[in-house]
């Protein structure tokens, strides 16, 4: 089982971290909303940080896949040259819903567009991990050849223990379905904090659920 962290902290970045500098100063709840926080140039900041020589150890990064100004070929080539070997879609549009989601989809800001971008990265020689929220997202990502999925449990809200159990049961069912569809898929569960990840591990320690590990948000606040 592999544990990765999603972090904006350059100092804690290692081979087990997914580096995402635009999340600097955001807590876990705000990180989920990062696609709607125009606080800087997400991809620009990433390249800027990676370009510093001492940061060559970073090999997993998070991209704003729906940036309308990126030239994907150039970006992926630059990332590869900077030592990056794996990319993921964060900040993500997976939480957008209702009419706002519809409007954003019209300008190509949608999970499907993010997965297309990741698929493009794979063709450029990079590995890709896709954040997904639903079975629909998972199917779409699999159909594009993505074989590493990070299942997000949803926006962080206070839940009763009973509600939490129901939530995770549905997530586990979704994971089993995805594995049945594509046995080679590696699935990670996203957790908003290390505590949340520990609690999940403890709660399902006897489960036969085949997950490859966790991705845990590491707050810099």
């Amino acid at each position: 089982m592999q544990n990765n962290s999603l972090t904006s902290d350059i100092n804690s970045a290692s081979s087990d971290t997914i580096f995402c500098p635009i999340l600097s100063g955001l807590n876990a709840e705000q990180s989920d909303c990062a696609a709607l926080i125009p606080s800087g140039n997400a991809n620009g900041l990433l390249i800027e940080n990676l370009s510093k020589k001492e940061n060559q150890k970073i090999d997993q990064v998070a991209l704003l896949c729906t940036d309308p100004f990126i030239n994907k070929e150039v970006l992926f080539a630059d990332l590869f040259e900077l030592g990056v070997r794996s990319v993921t879609n964060w900040p993500s549009s997976i939480f957008l819903d209702q009419s706002f989601s519809k409007a954003m989809t019209n300008i190509k800001v949608s999970p499907a567009d993010e997965f297309e971008c990741l698929s493009h990265a794979m063709k450029s020689g990079l590995d890709a991990k896709a954040f997904i929220l639903s079975l629909y997202h998972g199917r779409k990502a699999l159909s594009l050849g993505i074989r590493n999925l990070i299942v997000h449990p949803g926006l962080k809200v206070e839940l009763s223990e009973e509600a939490k159990s129901t939530l995770y049961e549905s997530i586990h069912l979704m994971i089993e379905t995805l594995i049945a569809m594509e046995p080679s898929v590696k699935i990670y569960i996203y957790q908003h904090s290390a505590e949340e990840a520990s609690a999940h591990k403890a709660r399902y320690k006897d489960s036969h659920l085949k997950i490859s590990g966790y991705v845990v948000y590491e707050t810099s606040v």
Partner: peptide, 23 residues
């Protein structure tokens, strides 16, 4: 507005929400 600038750069107004610049 940042939306106006994004339009001038060829993007849609709605992309004003995205982390493309510090608005």
């Amino acid at each position: 507005l940042n939306a106006g600038r994004l339009r001038m750069r060829g993007a849609a107004s709605l992309s004003c929400y995205l982390p493309l610049e510090n608005a």
